[in-house]
Amino acid sequence: MSFDNVWLNANLATMGDDALGLIEDGAIASKNGRIAWVGPRTGLPAHAAPVTDCGGAWILPGLVDCHTHLVFGGNRAAEFEQRLGGATYEEIARAGGGILSTMRATRAASEAQLVQAALPRLDALLREGVTTVEVKSGYGLEPETELRQLRAARALGAQRPVSIVTSLLAAHAVPPEYKGRQGEYARHVAEDIIPRAAAEHLADAVDAFFDSIGFTAEETALVFAAAQRHGLPVKLHADQLTDCGGAALAAAHGALSADHLERSNSAGIAAMARTGTVAVLLPGATLILRETHFPPIAAMREHGCRMALSTDMNPGSSPALSLLLMLNLGCTLFRMTVPEALLGVTRHAAAALGLGDRGVLAEGLRCDLALYRIQRPAELCYWLGGNPCIGRVVAGIAA
């Protein structure tokens, strides 16, 4: 058969089923950036393609970090100190810190400055085997900076071998110019910012923050209706600070994902399971905010709601540079099983972005691979601070 590249002497975690789909002594072949063959090495067809001997490494689908705020100006280390002193996330936000603090730094940064600041953060993810990263805006809160953030995100994908998926999160907070006029700002997002982002093909989805310090159900519906008019799928920050029905709201709008969900109720989780909305869990924020409410994992299992894991990399509540660390935190904090956690950064994370062409090692899908020097896949969830990644392949090409 005609292949472009072949990887031999490897063990595979195909992620094709809930037991990880393990194949020992396996092989993978690529053609035109796609997986052309995968299975036990003994069944590999005859070929003349270049071969990579993996030396017994494990191969997983390239990891997917499906919820990040990677592009921003400045940092919020001072607020981290405030929280250590007893201030809450909500108190800091209401005093003009939090998202608005990063808004000011991001508005002051050029596109080039945003790209240069984000590249080291992106590189940290790539070193761990990540091949797809979602990047949100949401720190501009006005058209020019929101679009600048999205352009910077696109530029990252041009400078590194990685797939960048963008989400417009202009409905993240109310900017100072609209203080006391939250509904008017939501209309501005719907009528002005979303159409511009769509016209310039800068956004792959639209996100919103629905919570006690976020937008109302009516305002979120207005934003989502505008997204859908422009052919953009939607996502939702939901139920992080209060159980305000965010899980059910996301399901009602057919959202790709609902993210956070620390205080979601079982009925909302059941609604998500029915619509296929993925639950994106963010243990980095749980750790940094010293949160005592954990996502309702038992309800997600009971109702069959798919669970993804992500860094939530952002300057305030989750300055996390490691998706592998999130695997450990998902298991230790949230009590996820190893298969649940690993599916959460591959197959289910891809589903949270609406990407059906990756996250599984299967013929016809993108040949995005992550190679690890480990004895068993559980080690990816076990080690704290280690990085056993020895290689990445993006669309069939070693990166």
Rank of each mutant, 00 (worst) to 15 (best):
L122R: 01
G26L: 03
Q159C: 09
A320G: 01
V115R: 06
N75K: 00
L333W: 08
E79R: 06
T216V: 02
R392W: 07
V360R: 04
P61A: 08
L70D: 12
P50A: 11
L342D: 09
I35P: 00
V64Q: 09
L12Y: 02
L380V: 07
L369G: 06
F209H: 05
R376I: 00
E146R: 03
R274P: 11
T42N: 13
T275V: 02
R373A: 15
F209R: 00
H201K: 12
A227M: 04
I193N: 08
I99G: 10
H303M: 07
G356T: 12
R107G: 12
A352K: 02
V280W: 07
L249I: 01
T346H: 06
P283R: 02
G245R: 01
E128V: 01
E134W: 06
N265D: 15
P195H: 03
R94K: 13
V189C: 12
H237Q: 05
A46E: 15
Y185C: 07
R376C: 10
R392V: 06
F210S: 01
C244I: 10
S110N: 11
H303Q: 13
E200T: 00
V38F: 05
S137L: 03
A87Q: 14
V189D: 10
A112T: 14
S212A: 12
H293E: 15
P388R: 00
L353I: 03
C381M: 05
R358D: 13
W383Q: 07
D357E: 15
T106S: 14
I194F: 07
A77I: 13
T346S: 14
F334C: 05
M103C: 14
Q113E: 15
T332N: 07
R274W: 08
P315F: 12
